[in-house]
Amino acid sequence: MPDAVTAEAVDIELAEQFVTKEQQRDVGTLGMWAWLVTELLLFAGLFLCALILRIQFPADVTLATTHLKFWIGATNTAVLICSSLTMSGAIVLSRLGWRRGMLGCMLATACLGTLFLVLKGYEYYQDYDENMMPFLARPYALGAHPSTRLFLDIYYVTTGLHGVHLITGVSILLVLTWQASRPRFLQMHQNRIEIYGLYWHFIDLIWIIVFPVLYVLNR
């Protein structure tokens, strides 16, 4: 456990446009929330399309969903929830000023994120193997009806977009870990860990919407 010897001072450095540090902290957090609202809207259109398709053409969509790899999706959900847990750990430890523990948690988060991507890649490979990708110039095995195809297309676009976010997230996290490994980081930029944490939880949240909307409903 952190003791007086290992704990570092925790603070932020006041940027010139602010009057108080409290204002600076609030600004950072609000800025990230605003960004997340905009991201949510980016995905919302896709979720809405998927839901409308399900309501309009339940049978055709069920045909597609039964071929999605439910267990890989479920495992990935668990993986991401675990990664949110480790990220929360990193935030708590950063507040306490326990740098080594925080770095460990951040690396664990990045590893879990990578594990998710690997599993997702394997899932895409299986789909490819089962001829489930209607947009490729190769045989396509699932129902010919437009709404089945449309649903699958939306599935690939949504999970692909989420994957891009995750790749970005892991890259930023690794850079941040590297930065945070240097001395005095926590004295100058502790709030970056908290702000980044919001983003990571958000990627997680998107997947927690993706999973029921695309994999589970009327299965």
Binding site: F57, A59, D60, G143, A144, H145, P146, S147
Partner: peptide, 19 residues
């Protein structure tokens, strides 16, 4: 064009698509 879609009650779907 898409006989697989909207299956009709009481019939087996055997019609080919004319798309």
């Amino acid at each position: 064009l898409n006989p697989d879609h909207n299956l009709i009650a009481g019939y087996k779907q055997v019609m080919p698509s004319f798309a």
